[in-house]
Design a protein around this nucleic acid. Structure first.
Lengths: 230, 230
DNA sequence: AATTCGCAAAATTTATAAATTATTGGCTTG
DNA sequence: CAAGCCAATAATTTATAAATTTTGCGAATT
């Protein structure tokens, strides 16, 4: 259902529309296309070098993911953001991923735990920022971060639930892209991930769920602070 | 996010594509377009009397709802069904609506409870079948049934969660359309709804959640039986 | 004098039709 | 009998046309 943010391993998309979809999505998630912006066909056509049909196709797909809104007869816009929505998305993610993690752990097996360990290792050895002085987001870190979280809940044996979590992650990613830099040194995210991994491997389900939820809530708190002082 | 299955109150859709989307969706949910069927543009164009653009638009929206799958360069197909998927969807719905109902009830207030009472009343007075002898699905009942269940979880204060539940309901609706008739007299669905309403109004959250989940599981059981003896 | 209402021009979205590109199946050839 | 090529079919994309909304200007009214 969801495509990678990064690194499709060289495969070029089979159809132009799919390629546009991926590029558009990446640009919205990274906030290069800022919230609320009008997406005029003409602008997009020259920006992405494609005709109207594949563009409409991409926009329509993004609409069902709530990253784009289409006002009938009046064109498409990047979905706008709000602190309310941030809170709502975070709350929902905590509920649903809590559920999913509990199930994942109920189905725990060696294979999953080992994959988790590897995913965490990869995340852990990837620098958060491209530049150690001034924060500059490292897309590779985003990729491994996303994978680690996806894997945590990925053992719950419900593809629809996983898909829903991915969508929430996407929609929240935008807020993270917007709230830049600030939490860079303040917060020790790496340690939070390590602790979560530990409790999961120890099969302390309730602790793990609590930690994961707290992880998301803290992220939201930082973003809220950052965004409301602008 | 989701549009009505029935009765838009006379408003004609603002755009052709939206109209096609609604009709296509209704036809897929009612299984008039059977699972697995290939949706050829040419066929759809004459069937729905529209050009390619609005059709592609509709198909793309349905794709993100998992009602249609698009194989690149090879066209669109109605999503196929399986007992596995039925089980997965039901399990997921039980988890997620359990969560949502608990939250709804935590936010309970008079207005919501009264709306629920009315919704149930409307459902209760609508006949299940158009013909009291031989079962013939009554679309009005579907409409009220859907509304009642939507309202149950509708007070949970999370639009994303509500949207996800609607999508699960849609995808499960197809299975119900397929497994016709059999449960018509066997099961007393009306009583199940009445009991759920009672426990909700009595604010017995855990009982209500259990009953709702059992309601969905029983439905799935009947459909499974029906479908596997064919 | 300022503001509102209405009409016409411009811009933009939506829909259709035509052209291009990819895939499938059959036929020929090695 | 297998492999490769060619024709037919179908999806994708571009280009064109129609419909709708927005914008700007001017007149009329408060």
């Amino acid at each position: 259902m969801n495509t990678n943010l990064l690194n499709r391993g060289g495969e070029s998309p089979a159809t132009l529309a799919t390629g546009i979809y991926e590029r558009l999505k990446a640009d919205i998630l990274s906030a290069r296309l800022e919230p609320g912006r009008k997406l005029q066909l003409r602008f997009l056509m020259e920006q992405y070098g494609a005709g109207q049909t594949p563009l409409r196709e991409a926009l329509n797909r993004l609409t069902s993911e709530d990253l784009v809104v289409g006002k009938e007869q009046r064109g498409f816009f990047v979905q706008s953001i709000s602190l309310d929505e941030l809170a709502e998305l975070t709350k929902t993610r905590c509920w649903v991923e809590g559920l999913a993690l509990r199930e994942s752990m109920a189905n725990a097996n060696a294979e999953w735990e080992e994959a988790l360990l590897v995913a965490h290792h990869r995340l852990d050895r990837t620098p958060r920022s491209l530049d150690p002085e001034h924060f500059e987001n490292n897309p590779e870190w985003d990729f491994h971060h996303r994978n680690f979280h996806a894997l945590l809940i990925g053992n719950c044996a419900s593809r629809p639930l996983i898909g829903f979590c991915e969508q929430l992650a996407d929609r929240l990613h935008r807020y993270r892209s917007l709230s830049s830099r600030k939490a860079f040194r303040v917060r020790n995210v790496a340690e939070e991930h390590a602790t979560i991994l530990k409790t999961v491997l120890n099969r302390q389900a309730e602790d793990a769920v609590r930690l994961l939820q707290r992880h998301y809530e803290q992220t939201a708190d930082f973003i809220t602070q950052d965004l409301s002082t602008k």
